[in-house]
């Protein structure tokens, strides 16, 4: 599989369009596994416009989470560049707020204390940070739950706490890695509405990593479809659905067309991914 370091790459001399706040250029990443080195991501490039909602979609094992970690600055040792507002970023950046796939609320803090967390770290005075946190708590629809602990909330509510906490960081770009993966389909659609509403109210630039086609089409302005290992950009699909949107759009004909289009692109990759993992499982048998 492609030896990244030796391969000649096309020079990225062209300056990105000025309304791109986040530019990902030619990302590449290799991992060492017991079965040898695996190229997770290869030559991934895309940009996110100001106020845009962009999703990266791909089958399991396409390196989506690697892209998430690199853009968030949590993954060292990669090729390529991540630029925010023209400035190259290495390591966690104050203009990027991350929402993780796993349960990530602090169990020892109440909802209010969880959401105030980034403000507390930034040294905002107690009264002010609570006031600002309350705004984001009601934005995600959790007003009234300020003094509850995460263990008293449902999974969907906890994930909303995590989103509110990241929003309180007031990031230029909201970066989410399958934040609804652990939730059931209905909760997911309703939370999608919530995300649409938040994005509208805050004009929040958002980069969502997902494997869920409905979710991607429901929420996005554009969708980056990735290939199975090594993860490359297969196609970028413009979703020209009217805004403001709600989950009702799921029933529309246009929605169905986009879902079918994205699935057509993905099907091949997902099939290949499944076949490869089955072969892998066979060959690993002693």
């Amino acid at each position: 599989m492609g030896a990244i370091g030796t391969e000649a790459r096309p020079a990225q001399a062209m300056a990105p369009p000025p309304d791109w706040v986040l530019v990902v250029e030619d990302l590449g990443k290799r991992f060492d596994t017991p079965d040898g080195a695996v190229t997770a991501v290869d030559g991934v490039s895309f940009g996110v416009r100001k106020g845009e909602f962009l999703s990266v979609i791909g089958p399991s094992g396409c390196g989506k989470t690697t892209v998430f970690n690199i853009v968030g600055g949590l993954e060292p040792g990669y090729q390529g560049r991540v630029r925010i507002g023209g400035e190259e970023v290495r390591g966690p950046h104050k203009s990027i707020g991350m929402v993780f796939q796993e349960e990530s609320t602090f169990p020892w803090r109440t909802v209010l204390e969880n959401v105030s967390f980034p403000l507390e770290v930034a040294g905002v005075a107690r009264a002010e940070r609570h006031q600002r946190a309350r705004r984001f708590i009601s934005l995600v629809g959790l007003a009234g739950f300020e003094n509850r602990y995460p263990s008293e909330l449902s999974g969907g509510m906890r994930q909303r706490v995590a989103i509110a906490r990241t929003l309180a960081f007031e990031p230029t770009i909201l970066l989410m890695d399958e934040p609804f993966a652990a939730l059931d389909e209905q909760t997911r659609l309703i939370l999608g509405d919530k995300v649409l509403q938040i994005q509208q109210e805050l004009a929040q630039t958002t980069l969502l990593i997902t494997h869920n086609i409905t979710e991607a089409v429901q929420l996005s302005d554009r969708i980056v479809v990735m290939t199975f290992r090594p993860g490359r950009v297969k196609r970028i699909v413009e979703i020209d659905l009217p805004r403001p949107r709600t989950s009702e759009i799921v029933g529309s004909e246009a929605f169905g067309r986009y879902v079918a289009q994205v699935w057509n692109d993905l099907r091949e990759e997902a099939t290949r991914g499944m076949a490869e993992s089955e072969i892998g499982a066979l060959s690993r048998r002693p």
Binding site: G73, P92, H93, S104, F117, E120, V121, F169
Partner: peptide, 22 residues
């Protein structure tokens, strides 16, 4: 949990804050 540490890193916590708050 790894993800809690990642949350801290995503909020640019210093080593001291990471210890005291997470």
């Amino acid at each position: 949990r790894r993800v809690l540490i990642n949350v801290g890193r995503s909020f640019n916590l210093t080593a001291g804050q990471m210890f005291a708050k997470i």
